[in-house]
């Protein structure tokens, strides 16, 4: 599973979703397709959600093996350290699944 990211030409920072300029060093960023494999850094289940959303929302912060971090929704419970695969959905948000 591939996810779109950008990598800074200057400081090599990886940011998702892709953007033109590095948030840190102003360097130009190049779009890359990264493998979605990674590990859950932290997570939460949100019980009080904004209007237009349905509770509960499960979300995890994933550190990709290829670099960069992304917040992704999950349909199942995960733990810190759970190995996951991140998928980019058509609306640009991300979904994680235990590997």
């Amino acid at each position: 599973m591939k996810v779109r990211a950008s990598v800074c030409d200057r400081c090599h920072e990886t940011i998702l979703p892709p953007r033109e300029r590095c948030p840190e060093c102003r360097g130009p960023m190049a779009v890359r397709e990264l493998d979605g494999a990674g590990e859950v850094v932290t997570h939460t289940t949100v019980h009080v959600v904004p209007e237009g959303f349905q509770a509960p929302i499960r979300v995890g912060l994933v550190r990709l093996d290829a670099g960069g971090q992304v917040l992704a929704r999950s349909e199942v419970a995960v733990e810190i350290g759970t190995r996951v695969t991140v998928e980019e959905l058509p609306d640009g948000t991300h979904l994680l699944r235990p590997a």
Partner: peptide, 20 residues
């Protein structure tokens, strides 16, 4: 924007920071 579109709130982010 990426956080808002997932339905996250300030508390959701604080919760992840707390857990870590």
């Amino acid at each position: 924007d990426t956080e808002v579109r997932l339905g996250l709130t300030m508390t959701s982010l604080a919760a992840m920071v707390a857990r870590l």
